[in-house]
Amino acid sequence: MIIDAHAHISCWEELGISGDADYVVELMDLHGIDKACVSDSRSLRYDFVQGNDGILRAVRRYPDRILGYVTVNPWHGEEALKEFRRRILEDGMVGLKLHVSHTRVNYHSPLCDPLLEEASDLEVPVLIHCYDGGASADKAASKHPRVKLILGHMGGPDWFDAIMVAKRHPNIYLEICSSVMERGIIETAVRHIGAERVLFGTDMPLLDPVVSVYKVRDAEITEREKRLILGENMARILNLEA
């Protein structure tokens, strides 16, 4: 089973790129992806409740294919916490998405503490946009050792720093989608932290799933390690049957 740990239902008008749930499922079919965990760019860039509503519609349209991340803005305090809890407990969403670039809240900020504690209690993963080599995640993981923290984009260009951060924190996972397509990223991560905490993700429909699929396929790692990365690890995190 292939599970995409990082996808969207989104529109980037300024780039001439957009994709609704139907388009995302088309891409999944094209690349053999069984399930995708998605958030909505509206949540990230405009209104998180509206965006989460859109995700819920996508999940209901494709219940076997699309899983929803709740997105909130930590600046909204109790309102954000209630939205997170409600979407997980009542709507069946599977995790939390936080994005520092849009909200200007670092993950180790006190503003994130209640959300990360709640994620720990609810036992759902938190996907964070991570382009700082994992610096903020390092501190957040120390404060919240029970939370399953997924570092989207594997830290960005300073991905080796993120691997070292993951090495220090067993509750950190590295998700591989990125415009940083350097050869050797996957092999280096597997060598230092094992394949069990490396996750397949695509960032579709912004990025092309083909990039992440073939990064894994072209990597010099074992077939078992590829299976773990492509789906078995995320299935374990989400308590899905592989």
Binding site: L30, H31, M181, R183, V210, V211, V213, Y214, D218
Partner: peptide, 19 residues
Amino acid sequence: TGYCLFYPLVGVAKVSTAR
């Protein structure tokens, strides 16, 4: 492909799997 900087199969697959 951008090889030797990038995984070469990615560049090929972008086109070979394209619709």
